[in-house]
Write a protein that binds this DNA or RNA. Sequence first.
DNA 1: TCTGTTGTTTGCGCTAGGGCAAATTCCATT
DNA 2: AATGGAATTTGCCCTAGCGCAAACAACAGA
Lengths: 234, 234
Amino acid sequence: MASLDRSLIAGLSVFEGIAAADLDRIIGQARSIRVARDQRVFEQEQEAHSFFLLLDGHVRVVKSTPDGHEVTVRYISPGELLGIASALGRTTYPANAIAAADCVVLAWPSQLWLTFSASFPSFSANTYKAVGSRLQDAHSRVVEMSTEQVEQRVAHALLKLIKQSGKKTEEGILIDFPISRQDVAEMTGTTLHTASRLLSAWEDQGLVKGGRQKIVVVEPHRLLVIAEGRTSKS
Amino acid sequence: MASLDRSLIAGLSVFEGIAAADLDRIIGQARSIRVARDQRVFEQEQEAHSFFLLLDGHVRVVKSTPDGHEVTVRYISPGELLGIASALGRTTYPANAIAAADCVVLAWPSQLWLTFSASFPSFSANTYKAVGSRLQDAHSRVVEMSTEQVEQRVAHALLKLIKQSGKKTEEGILIDFPISRQDVAEMTGTTLHTASRLLSAWEDQGLVKGGRQKIVVVEPHRLLVIAEGRTSKS
DNA sequence: TCTGTTGTTTGCGCTAGGGCAAATTCCATT
DNA sequence: AATGGAATTTGCCCTAGCGCAAACAACAGA
């Protein structure tokens, strides 16, 4: 762990309200791991031996069903925790965590969770706050899936992605990691084909610009109109 | 608070590992509230002034969307906490909690959460465990909504309901509170009509027995077959 | 430069299930 | 018993979007 890392890490919301010395104690016990694109940080059903903090890269959390479907639960951006199953009383990971780009993560043995949360109350408070908002997100997803049509869901998904990992370019806002049409489909509960058709249609209208594993949102505002469901339906 | 209540309450999983004296301190600070059927325990967007423990009855947690859709997030059975938004760092309730039957709940002012979780570590640990499994449930819902068809989802919903609130009768397993076809629809992301059609079809096959606001599952095993998606599709 | 592989696009047909509308049944009240 | 309102059932039509299949890029490695 280079000290360079520490200064960056100190600013993360998970560590808000934690004294520098304590932070050192926490970080000192982490292993730093490099995970190549498409490699897994952890696997569904596996014993939850560690919890992680994503320092760099992007991770896709995917649930696999017995019948072979894959559903993307969420994307993780740098600064977020992942694999905190153990903090919630689980002993196995509930999903696969796959590097959407080359990643650097910090890993702590699960049993340290108890120690940390006892010694550093802000740490557990911050974590549970994050869990709370994930629960909210999940419930919103359920609501979306129940009430919106595919077009709106895909629009919402793109908006979330650019909010989380958008990068300004001359063309528009680029999603800052490789993402396929298939990935979009797995986020929104549709098929590769429908996702592709939608993206193509939007590209024709100048709303987005696509590419192989690449999506650039040109007009976020018009995308929002679609997401909100107020479309003229030409 | 009658002492009668205390002995029942002591057995609840939320209070596991808490000394009797501590339990008294906790319960002593609760108000006991009676909520009539169709009345609300709390309302979406309202300030989260309290958190609750359901002692008797059944509560439906429903999210209302701006465009008038209602999505049932979960049903709460006696012994479960609800309205714990504040424990997760939220200041407003994220949904409506509606009594599906006449209820008795204990209510604590939200600010007591911090006190309790500091003084009684088991209490917060138990709570977060519950939050963890709700997060799991929510993710499962997302997966179901993404990969299963309506028939399977409705079957799953009924199975969950009888597991949570099933009551054996001569006819079969009765869902122990009034539940309409509309309610089933809002749980599964479909319409009243489709839900009704499914229930009728199942009734013809002797799988369930319906009634006004009443569902009795006659053959849980066959329902499970449908839920798992291994149907011959006659 | 060529070639195989992986991601993307698109056409076409089909069906699950939503929307609408009208009966029908059940229950609570009078 | 009669009345009115709410829950339920059902028929019919219609479309969003899935499945299949086939073409088409774009990139990686030889």
